[in-house]
């Protein structure tokens, strides 16, 4: 029996008992998902998927990565994405596909042709199942990278401290990706708020090593090139010790122990430069 005939046999089988198969399929899957998705929703998903698989089989045979399976794949992408977002595991996602095998199994006659057709169909479903696992993984990765980005955004607020002075309270470790975000936000806020001074407070930075110092230096130099001065504040005693022990040079960048010292320093500098200084 050739490939086309097998596909034909399967199409016939799947068409004849369409309603019964879909019903059983939905039943099996609902049980595996233990009620975390409504039966109505599942029925809609699986009916659509069933139709698409049937159509693909009818139009072009059993090669799952071929063009005529595009519709099936896009339905599976949607299904995997939804499952991943709702917190289902990859297994629970793939089972939606695999359990179609169980449905088909009891109705086969023992004939060789039927068995061969079933094996082919099973291989097809394996492939589609793996595809859902892949998609599930991809969606997870997307979610993680979006969250990482949100974390970056969350952890780098720029606040206005005074007329012409902005502050950046840094919390957490500074790597180069974060430094770039912090830098960009800080420099943009200088322009937006017309500020000539920025205070970078590192009270919440757990450790300062040469790399972190390097990142801070770059930020300060960039701000200077735009015409603004930076002060680094919140240097805790242990951090000051580490900085000296490691021989880190902050050059001529003013550093202060506390945010209030730094603010006083910035305001004094603004007053000296003839810029509106506020209270001083």
């Amino acid at each position: 029996m050739a490939g086309a005939d097998m596909a034909q046999r399967l199409v016939q089988l799947l068409t004849d008992q369409r309603d019964a198969f879909v019903e059983q399929w939905v039943d099996t899957v609902v049980r595996s998902l233990r009620g975390r998705i409504t039966e109505a929703e599942l029925r809609r998903e699986l009916t659509e998927l069933y139709g698409a698989v049937l159509e693909a089989l009818a139009s072009g045979g059993l090669a799952p990565r071929a063009e005529h399976f595009a519709e099936v794949r896009s339905l599976l992408v949607e299904l995997s994405r939804n499952r991943a977002r709702q917190g289902f595991s990859p297994t629970e996602t793939a089972i939606s596909v695999f359990s179609l095998k169980e449905v088909l199994e009891p109705v086969l006659s023992g004939e060789n042709d039927d068995i061969r057709a079933y094996l082919q169909f099973s291989r097809l479903l394996d492939d589609l199942g793996l595809f859902t696992v892949e998609e599930h993984g991809r969606t997870r990765e997307e979610i993680i990278s979006v969250q990482a980005e949100q974390l970056l955004e969350l952890s780098t607020p720029v606040v206005k401290l005074w007329d012409g002075v902005v502050g950046v309270p840094l919390v957490g470790t500074l790597d180069s990706a974060r430094t770039q975000v912090v830098m960009e936000k800080l420099l943009q806020s200088l322009i937006d708020s017309n500020s000539t001074h920025a205070i970078i407070d590192i009270t919440g930075v757990p450790a300062v090593d040469t790399q972190v110092a390097q990142h801070l230096l770059k930020t300060v130099v960039a701000a200077r090139m735009m015409g603004a001065e930076c002060t680094i504040s919140g240097i805790r005693p242990q951090i000051a010790q580490t900085i000296v022990t490691l021989g880190i040079e902050f050059g001529d960048i003013p550093t202060k122990a506390t945010l209030s010292d730094a603010l006083r320093h910035a305001l004094a500098q603004r007053a000296a430069a003839g810029q509106a200084g506020g209270l001083l």
Partner: peptide
């Protein structure tokens, strides 16, 4: 800002040039 960040990375500090926002 993007220009300033790029110049820092490039290693050009524009020393001796006065700048303003």
């Amino acid at each position: 800002p993007a220009v300033a960040m790029t110049l820092v990375e490039l290693g050009l500090s524009l020393g001796g040039v006065r700048t303003a926002l």
